[in-house]
Design a protein around this nucleic acid. Sequence first.
DNA 1: CACGGATCCTGATGGC
DNA 2: TGCCATCAGGATCCGT
Length: 271
Amino acid sequence: MPELPEVEVTRLSFVDRISGAKIESVRMGKPLRWPLGCLPQELVGHSVVSVRRRGKYLLLDLDQGLLMVHLGMSGSVTFGRHLPPAGVHDHFDLCTSQGTLRLHDPRRFGAVVFAPGEQDARAQKLLGKLGMEPLDDGFDLALFQKGLTRRKAAIKQVLLAGDVVVGVGNIYASEALFLAGIRPTTQAAKLSRPRVARLQKAIREVLALAVARGGSTLKDFSNANGDAGHFQLEAMVYGRAGQACKVCGTPIRMIRQGQRSTFFCSTCQKP
DNA sequence: CACGGATCCTGATGGC
DNA sequence: TGCCATCAGGATCCGT
């Protein structure tokens, strides 16, 4: 479910309330994608110093160690003082002095992983190969182009891979490529410098707009307060197969790339 | 090294 | 109403 905007919106919706909280107990439901990496008991007594984001990971900095939370395809987080009893899809509760952080994830592609520190092997295995942060100043055009030039694969799939730039998932890859006027099937390495620059700008703009809109709620995403996002209403191509392009009227096309749906306008987006 | 496909899991939806 | 196939916001692993 969640791409960078949804993860960032989630982070913003509880970071202030959880910062400084002391962990009092931990409850775990069914297994998630990866094991926690420590006994739940070992988290008790530590406090949450802050919450950062790296790519699609929420990073809870503890006074000792790092708790990495990934929402997978269907995950969402709730934070509150009086949450209802855990349901069948609530697989992780971090009960703190300031409220409970709960991960709800029907498909269980998500994960909560503890590492002693960010440089620890367990953290590096998840974070070590991630690409540039698209909303940071470090999202450098020369580096972006360099990352794309040695890729023969389609630009859409290179964006999704996350090793050049992080956070762009299936919705925002289609949206960014539309804004940049680039056909998703174009080989990454074949993009000219001006088109790469246009794509960089498009990625920044679409992600920033999506954060401002509270993310996309296709089905059931909501932030830690339960609020839905609204970006999907402004999508130019995602989920609009057969409908008229909002710019030129051409019917939006849907194709499959690596088992994922891609949407584009064959008039506005050039190979 | 980089690519494409299979894979993890559950729920919603649509065709027959 | 039941049954089956297909599809969903992700990312890793494995064979080539």
